[in-house]
Nucleic acid binder design. Structure first.
Lengths: 231, 231
DNA sequence: CCAATATTTTAGGTTAACTTAACTTTGGTA
DNA sequence: TACCAAAGTTAAGTTAACCTAAAATATTGG
């Protein structure tokens, strides 16, 4: 067989499982074919084909025309991929000088190639990290994952004090921009203003950044990907 | 295109180039279809197919029924793969506790997935190593490779003193066995006896190993893969 | 509640990489 | 020198993963 991946799945199959997990988690229900296609940038019929293969392998439950749901085995496989990806990101940034904006692409390719053994050695070298460089929780080897209750910056009330915990965006340029504002997981701030009608949010950083601009105006879309805890 | 590898080649294509390089280097002439098939454990017609694709890409020169020779671009691509593989092996053993007997398989998969950038960061983290854990020279980024003039232990005269420099075997069990004899790149020894008719060689290690057995008898086949410099 | 629209699947086609079976070429020797 | 075995190629078929176009099903608004 031409699997080549340790999991017995194809690289592509592993990507589908991750995408389906993410879709299922964000919207509660089953993942729709079109949504999967959009997430993976393939045509909808390609999804039908892969869904067929993954269902046959017992990783998905497929109700035709109504979407797809991970089985226990499917969810475990998806979480295993997320663990690999996030351990890799953590390792590459901590030990090999990668920035948080460039590490995603590298991990995306490596996650299909590393052995479980290597992943665990990297994890051990980092003392079993719990979060990746973007603040995303790393699933354990047994498939548990923390579900932190986070609020998007866009939803925080004016006057509140909060800490940025996680950035749910993979785009390099946006990540570089966020970092340039002095924001990264762990940064504390106060919401000093909120414009209505999906307008921008203004925050003041608790610790003045090097360049001195402690007040920042952040567009609505970006503010939706900055996940925080109120304090 | 479905290349997925940084080089623009398929994983499989990269493997063919490495194999062809190795065959061309060991026997002087062009690499034969059957030999490539044997090295990669595929059927001969698969080789014909890939040779067609790689020739079309300008990496090989193919004279039908007479074998295959790497072009300049092909040789460069092959050396690039060897650099990746060997840097990976060096990194995994030095930084992540891999043994020389288990590192080959891991590197074999990763070499197709890592970016050039990551390879160079690993190289830098190791201070640009010149040899991999088996003593094989690591090609430079510009595609130069040292050609050390080494003699197989099997060919050393009785009474000579030599140093093991490189082990040209990838098999885990054999590597573990070699290590258990107290042999690794850098080990000095004296050839105390040689049996005729492809018989075993007896050596005495310069530095007595922990378990005290400084005399070792080594079969002919194994002795052919232990590459040494006489002193 | 039915028609328009959106979603999904089926049908049919492509490419890469593999396979086995059958044919062709090469080169050494009787 | 003609022949035969080994080496190599072509032919035809498989599987995975993609595609476009067309058909089927679901949803929703008038």
């Amino acid at each position: 067989m031409g699997s080549q991946t340790e999991s017995g799945l194809s690289r592509s199959g592993e990507d589908y499982l991750k995408a389906i997990y993410a879709l299922q988690t964000s919207h509660g229900g089953p993942a729709q074919t079109n949504a999967i296609a959009r997430a993976l940038e393939v045509a909808p019929p390609s999804v039908s084909g892969m869904v067929k293969r993954l269902s046959d392998a017992g990783l998905l439950e497929h109700i035709p025309y109504h979407g797809v749901r991970l089985t226990g085995a499917g969810r475990r496989a998806a979480l295993r991929m997320m663990r690999r990806h996030r351990i890799l990101e953590a390792y590459l940034t901590t030990k090999l000088g990668y920035d948080w904006d460039s590490v995603h692409a590298e991990a995306e390719r490596l996650e299909h190639a590393v052995s479980d053994r290597l992943v665990e050695r990297m994890a051990a070298a980092l003392d079993d990290p719990r979060y990746d460089p973007h603040g995303a929780p790393i699933p354990t080897t047994s498939g548990e994952i923390e579900q932190p209750a986070l609020t998007p910056l866009a939803d925080l009330p004016e006057g509140s004090t909060a800490e940025l915990r996680m950035v749910s965006d993979k785009d390099s340029e946006r990540l570089r921009y966020i970092a340039s504002l002095g924001l990264r997981p762990g940064t504390g701030f106060e919401v000093t203003a909120r414009q209505p009608f999906s307008g921008p949010v203004t925050i003041r950083l608790m610790q003045e950044p090097r360049d001195g601009r402690s007040e920042q105006v952040i567009g609505h879309e970006l503010a939706r990907s900055l996940l925080c805890v109120e304090e």
